[in-house]
């Protein structure tokens, strides 16, 4: 599950504003990644149609052909490369439009670097291992997907159905940060962040259950970003 990506992913960035593009490139560089950059929709569409990319980062408001229409055309042409839409149009309504058009994920500008990387990793991972196995293992945690139960170091951990969903989502992204927004969207199907700390409370619940009787935490909080499975070693 947690096999490191040996080759850097092939990324296409379609963004008309040089400043924003530079910011994205800078963020990617932090991971040792790079991207091909197109500064208009037409060039972006052409590149996406010809080159086999692992993921496309696509702005929405683009000259010539706008982002939504690029995704639609790609999908209509049977090209299923994962698309992360990156846009200043950040409201729930806008997200729904992006996802309806065929984008796999939608990230609002301004974005946190960790969030962009986490989402990109998630998309690449999803594209390569489409179906998780019946048993998911990361560090000392074992998840039986069909039986819907979890074990840590062989000890059964009692989880509510929703806690199981959270853990499963984190196992899907084992080793990577999952942000609050990703959790809200994937586990609760919510396109925005409530003002109260409901996610933190749910996460601390899950943590308590996983850590009961253990000295090392199973999940760590990454400040300002989200959560990550620690993946403690099996003793």
């Amino acid at each position: 599950m947690s096999a490191p990506t040996i080759l850097p992913p092939r990324i296409l960035l379609v963004e008309d504003e040089a400043d924003s593009a530079a910011l994205v490139m800078e963020t990617l560089a932090g991971e040792g990644w790079t991207a091909d950059w197109c500064d208009n929709g037409e060039a972006g569409l052409r590149a996406a149609a010809v080159q086999p990319y692992d993921v496309i980062i696509l702005d929405r408001m683009l000259p010539q052909i706008e982002g939504l229409s690029i995704v639609r055309r790609l999908r209509a042409a049977g090209i299923s490369v994962p698309v992360l839409m990156l846009s200043a149009l950040a409201r729930g309504e806008n997200r729904a439009e992006g996802l309806d058009a065929g984008a796999d994920d939608y990230l609002a500008k301004p974005f946190e670097s960790v969030e962009l990387i986490a989402r990109l990793r998630a998309l690449i991972r999803r594209a390569t291992n489409a179906t998780p196995g019946a048993v998911m293992i990361y560090g000392d945690i074992e998840l039986h997907v069909k039986a819907r139960n979890a074990h840590r170091q062989g000890k059964h951990v009692a989880l509510s159905p929703r806690e199981f969903e959270i853990l499963k989502f984190m196992m899907d992204h084992a080793g990577d940060i999952v942000t609050r927004e990703m959790l809200l969207r994937e586990v609760w199907n919510l396109a925005f962040d409530p003002q109260t700390n409901v996610i933190d409370v749910s996460m601390s619940r899950l943590r308590q259950r996983l850590d009961e009787g253990f000295d090392t935490p199973a999940i760590e909080t990454v400040r300002g970003a989200g959560y990550r499975l620690v993946g403690g070693l099996v003793p």
């Binding site: 400043d19 910011l23 806008n94 500008k109």
Partner: peptide
């Protein structure tokens, strides 16, 4: 959309500079 775009882009750059 224009309001969102024209305010969010500069905010993003301010945020990036602060970071």
């Amino acid at each position: 959309d224009a309001i969102a775009h024209e305010t969010r882009s500069p905010l993003m750059h301010i945020g990036a500079r602060i970071a």
